[in-house]
Protein backbone atom coordinates (compact mmCIF):
# COMPACT_ATOMS: atom_id res chain seq x y z
CA UNK A 1 0.00 0.00 0.00
CA UNK A 2 1.26 3.47 -0.90
CA UNK A 3 2.33 5.64 1.99
CA UNK A 4 1.11 9.08 2.88
CA UNK A 5 3.21 11.89 1.45
CA UNK A 6 1.31 14.93 2.65
CA UNK A 7 -0.89 15.07 5.66
CA UNK A 8 -3.08 18.07 6.43
CA UNK A 9 -4.36 17.74 10.01
CA UNK A 10 -7.15 19.91 11.42
CA UNK A 11 -5.88 23.00 9.66
CA UNK A 12 -7.75 26.23 10.33
CA UNK A 13 -7.11 29.66 8.88
CA UNK A 14 -8.65 32.87 10.18
CA UNK A 15 -8.21 36.35 8.80
CA UNK A 16 -9.30 38.54 11.69
CA UNK A 17 -12.94 37.54 12.20
CA UNK A 18 -13.25 35.76 8.88
CA UNK A 19 -12.88 32.01 9.02
CA UNK A 20 -11.42 30.84 5.71
CA UNK A 21 -10.71 27.26 6.77
CA UNK A 22 -11.79 25.31 9.80
CA UNK A 23 -10.59 21.90 10.78
CA UNK A 24 -9.63 20.67 7.34
CA UNK A 25 -7.88 17.31 7.24
CA UNK A 26 -6.89 15.06 4.39
CA UNK A 27 -4.00 12.82 3.34
CA UNK A 28 -2.33 12.67 -0.04
CA UNK A 29 -0.91 9.29 -1.01
CA UNK A 30 2.46 9.13 -2.64
CA UNK A 31 2.21 8.78 -6.42
CA UNK A 32 -1.48 9.67 -6.63
CA UNK A 33 -3.39 12.48 -8.26
CA UNK A 34 -5.48 14.08 -5.56
CA UNK A 35 -8.02 16.79 -6.37
CA UNK A 36 -9.46 19.50 -4.17
CA UNK A 37 -12.77 20.79 -5.46
CA UNK A 38 -15.52 23.05 -4.20
CA UNK A 39 -17.58 26.07 -5.14
CA UNK A 40 -16.00 29.51 -5.47
CA UNK A 41 -14.77 30.84 -2.14
CA UNK A 42 -14.67 27.39 -0.57
CA UNK A 43 -11.06 27.88 0.56
CA UNK A 44 -9.23 25.70 -1.97
CA UNK A 45 -6.43 28.15 -2.71
CA UNK A 46 -6.15 28.93 1.00
CA UNK A 47 -5.41 25.23 1.56
CA UNK A 48 -2.61 25.48 -1.00
CA UNK A 49 -1.21 28.57 0.68
CA UNK A 50 -1.31 26.79 4.03
CA UNK A 51 0.62 23.86 2.57
CA UNK A 52 3.35 25.95 0.92
CA UNK A 53 3.43 28.28 3.94
CA UNK A 54 2.66 31.38 1.92
CA UNK A 55 0.13 31.59 4.72
CA UNK A 56 0.84 30.26 8.17
CA UNK A 57 -2.13 28.18 9.35
CA UNK A 58 -3.86 29.59 12.44
CA UNK A 59 -4.30 26.10 13.84
CA UNK A 60 -3.58 22.50 13.00
CA UNK A 61 -0.54 20.80 11.53
CA UNK A 62 0.85 20.05 8.10
CA UNK A 63 3.17 17.10 7.67
CA UNK A 64 5.25 16.36 4.60
CA UNK A 65 6.72 12.86 4.84
CA UNK A 66 8.20 12.76 8.30
CA UNK A 67 8.57 16.48 8.71
CA UNK A 68 6.21 18.98 10.17
CA UNK A 69 6.22 21.93 7.80
CA UNK A 70 3.72 24.41 9.19
CA UNK A 71 5.62 27.43 10.42
CA UNK A 72 8.55 26.93 8.07
CA UNK A 73 9.51 29.63 5.55
CA UNK A 74 8.20 29.01 2.02
CA UNK A 75 11.73 28.61 0.67
CA UNK A 76 12.39 25.80 3.18
CA UNK A 77 9.18 24.09 2.11
CA UNK A 78 10.31 24.34 -1.50
CA UNK A 79 13.67 22.85 -0.55
CA UNK A 80 11.87 19.89 1.06
CA UNK A 81 10.18 19.15 -2.25
CA UNK A 82 6.86 20.96 -2.62
CA UNK A 83 6.29 23.24 -5.58
CA UNK A 84 3.22 24.92 -6.99
CA UNK A 85 1.57 26.92 -9.73
CA UNK A 86 -0.94 29.71 -9.31
CA UNK A 87 -4.54 30.23 -10.28
CA UNK A 88 -3.74 33.48 -12.08
CA UNK A 89 -0.40 32.74 -13.74
CA UNK A 90 2.49 34.25 -11.79
CA UNK A 91 5.53 33.96 -14.01
CA UNK A 92 8.45 36.34 -13.73
CA UNK A 93 7.08 38.41 -16.56
CA UNK A 94 10.09 40.56 -17.33
CA UNK A 95 12.68 37.85 -17.80
CA UNK A 96 12.84 35.28 -20.56
CA UNK A 97 11.17 31.89 -20.50
CA UNK A 98 14.43 30.01 -20.04
CA UNK A 99 15.47 32.32 -17.22
CA UNK A 100 12.20 31.52 -15.48
CA UNK A 101 13.24 27.87 -15.56
CA UNK A 102 16.74 28.73 -14.35
CA UNK A 103 15.27 30.59 -11.39
CA UNK A 104 13.29 27.45 -10.64
CA UNK A 105 16.59 25.52 -10.48
CA UNK A 106 17.97 27.93 -7.90
CA UNK A 107 17.81 25.31 -5.13
CA UNK A 108 19.89 22.83 -7.06
CA UNK A 109 22.63 25.13 -8.24
CA UNK A 110 25.63 25.44 -6.02
CA UNK A 111 27.59 28.35 -7.42
CA UNK A 112 28.12 31.32 -5.14
CA UNK A 113 28.15 35.00 -6.08
CA UNK A 114 31.89 35.33 -5.78
CA UNK A 115 32.31 32.21 -7.86
CA UNK A 116 30.25 33.98 -10.50
CA UNK A 117 32.37 37.12 -10.29
CA UNK A 118 35.59 35.13 -10.69
CA UNK A 119 33.93 32.83 -13.21
CA UNK A 120 35.48 29.79 -11.57
CA UNK A 121 35.52 26.44 -13.40
CA UNK A 122 33.03 25.17 -10.82
CA UNK A 123 30.60 27.99 -11.60
CA UNK A 124 30.98 27.44 -15.31
CA UNK A 125 30.27 23.74 -14.99
CA UNK A 126 27.31 24.47 -12.73
CA UNK A 127 25.86 26.99 -15.17
CA UNK A 128 26.45 24.74 -18.15
CA UNK A 129 24.63 21.86 -16.48
CA UNK A 130 21.80 24.18 -15.52
CA UNK A 131 21.55 25.47 -19.05
CA UNK A 132 21.34 21.94 -20.42
CA UNK A 133 18.65 20.96 -17.96
CA UNK A 134 16.72 24.11 -18.71
CA UNK A 135 16.80 23.30 -22.42
CA UNK A 136 15.56 19.81 -21.71
CA UNK A 137 12.73 21.17 -19.60
CA UNK A 138 11.94 23.73 -22.26
CA UNK A 139 11.62 20.92 -24.73
CA UNK A 140 9.40 19.00 -22.35
CA UNK A 141 6.94 21.86 -21.88
CA UNK A 142 6.87 22.40 -25.65
CA UNK A 143 8.62 25.74 -25.67
CA UNK A 144 11.87 24.82 -27.39
CA UNK A 145 12.72 27.71 -29.69
CA UNK A 146 10.71 30.18 -27.62
CA UNK A 147 13.03 30.22 -24.62
CA UNK A 148 14.45 33.67 -25.28
CA UNK A 149 11.06 35.35 -25.36
CA UNK A 150 10.00 37.40 -22.39
CA UNK A 151 7.60 35.36 -20.33
CA UNK A 152 4.92 38.01 -20.64
CA UNK A 153 4.97 37.75 -24.44
CA UNK A 154 4.13 34.05 -24.52
CA UNK A 155 0.65 32.83 -25.40
CA UNK A 156 -1.67 31.93 -22.56
CA UNK A 157 -1.35 28.17 -22.87
CA UNK A 158 2.43 28.49 -23.17
CA UNK A 159 2.53 30.54 -19.99
CA UNK A 160 0.57 27.83 -18.17
CA UNK A 161 2.98 25.15 -19.32
CA UNK A 162 6.02 27.29 -18.56
CA UNK A 163 4.74 27.86 -15.03
CA UNK A 164 4.44 24.11 -14.57
CA UNK A 165 7.94 23.73 -16.04
CA UNK A 166 9.27 26.26 -13.56
CA UNK A 167 7.66 24.34 -10.70
CA UNK A 168 9.19 21.12 -12.01
CA UNK A 169 12.61 22.76 -12.11
CA UNK A 170 12.70 22.72 -8.32
CA UNK A 171 12.49 18.89 -8.60
CA UNK A 172 9.50 18.54 -6.31
CA UNK A 173 8.12 15.33 -4.86
CA UNK A 174 4.72 16.98 -4.59
CA UNK A 175 3.41 19.37 -7.21
CA UNK A 176 0.44 21.60 -6.45
CA UNK A 177 -1.49 22.75 -9.52
CA UNK A 178 -4.01 25.52 -8.93
CA UNK A 179 -6.61 25.31 -11.72
CA UNK A 180 -4.27 24.37 -14.57
CA UNK A 181 -7.14 24.45 -17.09
CA UNK A 182 -8.63 27.78 -16.00
CA UNK A 183 -9.77 29.81 -19.01
CA UNK A 184 -9.17 27.01 -21.52
CA UNK A 185 -11.53 25.69 -24.19
CA UNK A 186 -12.32 21.95 -24.36
CA UNK A 187 -9.52 21.24 -26.80
CA UNK A 188 -6.90 23.11 -24.78
CA UNK A 189 -8.22 21.40 -21.67
CA UNK A 190 -7.66 17.99 -23.23
CA UNK A 191 -4.15 18.98 -24.19
CA UNK A 192 -3.45 20.18 -20.67
CA UNK A 193 -4.77 16.93 -19.21
CA UNK A 194 -2.49 14.95 -21.48
CA UNK A 195 0.36 17.20 -20.49
CA UNK A 196 -0.27 16.65 -16.79
CA UNK A 197 -0.33 12.90 -17.39
CA UNK A 198 3.04 13.19 -19.13
CA UNK A 199 4.41 15.17 -16.19
CA UNK A 200 3.37 12.41 -13.84
CA UNK A 201 4.70 9.65 -16.05
CA UNK A 202 8.05 11.29 -16.56
CA UNK A 203 8.81 12.73 -13.16
CA UNK A 204 6.95 10.14 -11.03
CA UNK A 205 5.62 12.80 -8.72
CA UNK A 206 2.55 13.21 -6.61
CA UNK A 207 -0.01 15.78 -7.77
CA UNK A 208 -2.43 17.84 -5.77
CA UNK A 209 -4.88 19.59 -8.02
CA UNK A 210 -7.44 22.34 -7.64
CA UNK A 211 -9.86 22.05 -10.51
CA UNK A 212 -13.20 23.41 -11.59
CA UNK A 213 -13.88 21.37 -14.69
CA UNK A 214 -15.61 18.21 -13.53
CA UNK A 215 -14.53 16.33 -16.65
CA UNK A 216 -10.90 16.83 -15.62
CA UNK A 217 -11.48 15.95 -11.98
CA UNK A 218 -13.46 12.82 -12.66
CA UNK A 219 -11.20 11.38 -15.31
CA UNK A 220 -7.83 12.15 -13.72
CA UNK A 221 -8.14 11.96 -9.96
CA UNK A 222 -7.42 8.98 -7.78
CA UNK A 223 -9.02 10.73 -4.86
CA UNK A 224 -11.11 13.87 -4.38
CA UNK A 225 -11.56 16.16 -1.38
CA UNK A 226 -14.55 18.50 -1.46
CA UNK A 227 -14.53 21.80 0.43
CA UNK A 228 -17.40 24.18 1.04
CA UNK A 229 -17.32 27.31 3.18
CA UNK A 230 -13.90 26.37 4.54
CA UNK A 231 -14.82 22.89 5.77
CA UNK A 232 -14.39 19.46 4.25
CA UNK A 233 -17.77 18.06 3.27
CA UNK A 234 -16.73 14.91 1.48
CA UNK A 235 -13.78 12.80 0.41
CA UNK A 236 -13.37 9.67 -1.63
CA UNK A 237 -12.99 8.21 -5.08
CA UNK A 238 -14.39 10.44 -7.83
CA UNK A 239 -17.43 8.25 -8.40
CA UNK A 240 -18.27 8.19 -4.69
CA UNK A 241 -17.96 11.92 -4.31
CA UNK A 242 -20.11 12.46 -7.36
CA UNK A 243 -23.01 10.68 -5.70
CA UNK A 244 -22.60 12.33 -2.29
CA UNK A 245 -25.71 14.37 -1.45
CA UNK A 246 -23.70 16.96 0.50
CA UNK A 247 -21.57 17.60 -2.57
CA UNK A 248 -24.54 17.91 -4.87
CA UNK A 249 -26.14 20.26 -2.38
CA UNK A 250 -23.03 22.43 -2.25
CA UNK A 251 -22.81 22.68 -6.02
CA UNK A 252 -26.47 22.78 -7.04
CA UNK A 253 -28.37 23.82 -3.88
CA UNK A 254 -30.36 21.68 -1.44
CA UNK A 255 -33.49 21.38 -3.57
CA UNK A 256 -31.54 19.81 -6.37
CA UNK A 257 -29.90 17.51 -3.88
CA UNK A 258 -33.31 16.28 -2.66
CA UNK A 259 -34.18 15.33 -6.24
CA UNK A 260 -30.84 13.77 -6.89
CA UNK A 261 -30.63 11.47 -3.88
CA UNK A 262 -33.28 8.90 -4.94
CA UNK A 263 -31.69 8.58 -8.38
Amino acid sequence: MAKTLLSVCNVGMRFGGLVALSDVSFDVQEGSIHSVIGPNGAGKTTVFNCITQNLRPSSGEVWFGDERIDGLKPDRVAALGISRTYQNIRLFRNISAIENLLVGMHLHLRSSWWGAVLNTPFTRADERAAHEQALELLQFVGLRGRGDMLARNLAYGEQRRLEIGRALATRPRLLLLDEPTAGMNPRETSEMMAFVERVRARYAITLLLIEHQMRVVMSMSDRVTVLDHGTKIAEGKPAEVQRDPAVIAAYLGTAAAAHAVPA
Binding site: F92, S111, A116, V117
Partner: peptide, 22 residues
Amino acid sequence: SRLGRAWMALRDDEDVAQALGI
Protein backbone atom coordinates in the same frame (compact mmCIF):
# COMPACT_ATOMS: atom_id res chain seq x y z
CA SER B 1 24.68 34.56 -12.31
CA ARG B 2 22.43 32.50 -10.11
CA LEU B 3 22.25 35.40 -7.68
CA GLY B 4 21.38 37.87 -10.44
CA ARG B 5 18.52 35.68 -11.58
CA ALA B 6 17.31 35.37 -8.02
CA TRP B 7 17.33 39.17 -7.77
CA MET B 8 15.32 39.56 -10.93
CA ALA B 9 12.84 36.98 -9.68
CA LEU B 10 12.60 38.96 -6.44
CA ARG B 11 11.93 42.12 -8.42
CA ASP B 12 9.14 40.56 -10.46
CA ASP B 13 7.35 38.63 -7.71
CA GLU B 14 8.78 38.26 -4.24
CA ASP B 15 6.28 35.65 -3.02
CA VAL B 16 6.77 33.37 -5.98
CA ALA B 17 10.53 33.71 -5.76
CA GLN B 18 10.38 32.58 -2.16
CA ALA B 19 8.06 29.69 -3.02
CA LEU B 20 10.71 28.51 -5.50
CA GLY B 21 13.27 28.22 -2.75
CA ILE B 22 14.99 31.59 -2.91
